[in-house]
Amino acid sequence: IRCIGVSNRDFVEGMSGGTWVDVVLEHGGCVTVMAQDKPTVDIELVTTTVSNMAEVRSYCYEASISDMASDSRCPTQGEAYLDKQSDTQYVCKRTLVDRGWGNGCGLFGKGSLVTCAKFTCSKKMTGKSIQPENLEYRIMLSVHGSQHSGMIVNDTGYETDENRAKVEVTPNSPRAEATLGGFGSLGLDCEPRTGLDFSDLYYLTMNNKHWLVHKEWFHDIPLPWHAGADTGTPHWNNKEALVEFKDAHAKRQTVVVLGSQEGAVHTALAGALEAEMDGAKGKLFSGHLKCRLKMDKLRLKGVSYSLCTAAFTFTKVPAETLHGTVTVEVQYAGTDGPCKIPVQMAVDMQTLTPVGRLITANPVITESTENSKMMLELDPPFGDSYIVIGVGDKKITHHWHRSGSTIGKAFEATVRGAKRMAVLGDTAWDFGSVGGVFNSLGKGIHQIFGAAFKSLFGGMSWFSQILIGTLLVWLGLNTKNGSISLTCLALGGVMIFLSTAVSA
């Protein structure tokens, strides 16, 4: 259960009878995928790494000078000259100064003066180019299975845990398959586009800190620079940016070097996208990844198990997540596992009318040892309800109150669905055939309105939902006002479609 501690969480529900669903994975976010007769899966884009970055340009932001020398000439005696002028490691300046009897010249006039100092770069920052084909995306998957609280967001041991898996995709191999043991396998067909235009970005490294910066900004930095990788004795261009020549006297000129420019660069980098280094690879934390999940090989585990009949206890007080759902960790005293956990939410304890829904599909106890633990997640209705676990006299209950409203949740879900469709863009549509167009249209309606429909009408039977949709269509056909007619027709059509397409 990876997503319960992530604030940016998206719930995606598969269409009834569908074998695939489109998701948008982004750094700092987590996606929970639910479908009829399929286990619930949490998917998170953990890291995006980039390798084989080529150094484009380096800037010196802290330097020192040494070996200063000057040469001067009297008027009419030609130009002052130093051998160091031809050495690229030196920074030199030529000027004219007033000369006369007082400073060793027989004539009054302008004399030539040249001053040089050896330039040494102490600290530099480097910009590297990123090729999209060198990106690698690491995705962690977790099935809502027989897990306890100690396994949440624990990325170790996934090789031997059938509840978890790690997959890596690249532009050259965008397809992967996550093996989930008894739950089958989940196929991923990803489109490795981060949403960032790397043709316009460089990877900047300064003092063990890293950013993504725009090329134009990078090339306009007014500091000494050299092109390409460091060859040991780089040729620094624009050395004068960190060196200041003071007022010249008759035979000498003082040279000083400016202080470190790291603070000024940090100020200019305010708002830039931060990154990290992992050995020789860069780690990015921006952008998104679009994936199509193929769920035809994914299956529920323990459908044929019998119900657990022994007593359950709450190991922890049920807690609310950031998303309005409830996490419950229970301990089973029996030894008759594997068995299914009898769990439901009810409005009252007399009729036990089921409300809400299970995020953890078909929760089971897989071990036959005593005191096995299991964590599950529920989506309670707004208002008061009861969490009921167990059967008969051994069942345990917990009162729950959820604040908020169904309308607010439906609106929030619609906005999130619209954002998801905007990110998917043209990849969500198939114009290759008439059937493809209608299929894409259905998927689009489901992406945007599916979660809201589930919130508003999830407790009704599909037949009642179709009746309401048919009534809206009838009202649309018999209303003389054009805008009201079109609105009723659209709402009725969407409702009829979703009542037959969205899983219960």
Rank of each mutant, 00 (worst) to 15 (best):
E320S: 12
K454S: 10
V255C: 08
K209R: 13
H235L: 12
R299Y: 06
W400R: 08
F457A: 12
G444Q: 11
I152Y: 15
D197F: 08
T88Q: 11
F119C: 08
M15Q: 04
T194E: 00
G287W: 02
E55S: 12
S385F: 09
T397D: 01
A80M: 13
E216P: 04
M15G: 01
L352Q: 12
T115V: 04
S260R: 03
T19E: 07
L424A: 03
E320L: 02
L472M: 12
T126W: 08
T351I: 07
T47A: 15
A227F: 12
G469T: 11
F218N: 09
A227I: 03
H249F: 10
H210Q: 15
V330L: 15
L269W: 12
I448V: 15
L498H: 13
E377K: 11
F183W: 10
N207L: 09
A69T: 13
T351G: 12
W429F: 04
S149W: 15
Y81F: 07
G14N: 07
A451N: 05
F312C: 12
T487R: 03
T48C: 09
E216H: 05
L82I: 15
W236S: 05
F314A: 00
G482C: 14
V21P: 00
S464I: 03
R292E: 01
L307N: 01
S122G: 09
I448G: 06
V391R: 15
Q85N: 10
V415E: 08
A452D: 10
D22G: 08
P192Y: 04
A272C: 12
H27V: 15
T95N: 14
V343P: 03
F245R: 02
D67S: 13
T479S: 15
S368N: 15
S199H: 01
C74E: 09
P75G: 04
D189I: 04
A241E: 03
V423A: 13
D98G: 12
L471V: 10
C105E: 06
L489M: 14
K128Y: 05
Y137A: 02
C60N: 07
L25H: 06
L135C: 04
K215H: 13
A333R: 12
E79D: 15
V167I: 15
L186K: 05
V326H: 04
H210P: 01
T487V: 14
G14M: 11
V6E: 06
E276T: 13
K93Q: 15
G184A: 05
A165E: 13
T40D: 06
I484Q: 10
F463S: 05
T47N: 02
L307S: 14
A490M: 13
R420L: 05
V31S: 14
M277H: 05
F314N: 03
A250C: 08
M125E: 05
E162A: 15
D200L: 00
G334R: 07
V434M: 13
L352D: 11
G181P: 06
S260N: 15
R252L: 01
K128N: 00
F245E: 08
T49C: 05
M277T: 14
L96G: 03
T32N: 03
G432P: 01
I484S: 02
G435K: 14
F453K: 12
I1W: 08
C488Y: 13
T267K: 15
L82G: 02
S122F: 10
V355Y: 14
S461Q: 10
K480C: 07
M349Q: 03
D200Q: 01
T126G: 14
F183H: 09
A346W: 15
L188D: 10
K93C: 12
L188K: 06
I496F: 15
W474T: 06
L293Y: 03
R138P: 00
T19I: 14
Q465I: 02
P132R: 00
F431W: 11
A428W: 07
D189S: 13
L212C: 08
F314Q: 02
A54S: 01
I484W: 08
K209D: 07
A275H: 03
S304L: 06
S485W: 09
F463W: 14
A452C: 12
T360M: 09
I389M: 12
G408E: 09
M460V: 13
K301S: 03
A178T: 13
V437W: 01
C308R: 08
L212H: 07
H226T: 11
P363I: 04
T369M: 04
K283R: 02
Q131L: 14
L467K: 04
L456M: 15
M460R: 10
D393K: 00
E274S: 10
G14E: 09
S485M: 13
D42V: 06
S440C: 10
R252A: 02
W474Y: 15
I468S: 14
C30N: 07
G425R: 09
Q331N: 10
T414H: 05
E136W: 14
R416K: 15
G18M: 06
D247L: 05
V256K: 01
N8W: 10
P318M: 10
E377S: 01
A501E: 08
R94T: 11
C3N: 05
L204G: 05
R175V: 09
A229S: 13
H27S: 12
E216C: 09
D189P: 04
E240D: 09
V343M: 08
G145E: 05
T427R: 15
M34S: 08
T325W: 11
L269R: 13
L486E: 05
K128W: 11
A264P: 04
M34L: 14
H266I: 13
Q344K: 15
T500R: 12
A80S: 01
I445Y: 10
T179V: 04
A490S: 15
S51Y: 06
C488I: 15
W236A: 01
A248Y: 05
F218H: 09
Y386R: 00
L188G: 03
R57D: 06
T406G: 00
W462D: 10
K124T: 11
L471Q: 13
D189K: 06
K93V: 03
T313Y: 00
G392Y: 08
T321D: 08
A268E: 08
G259C: 05
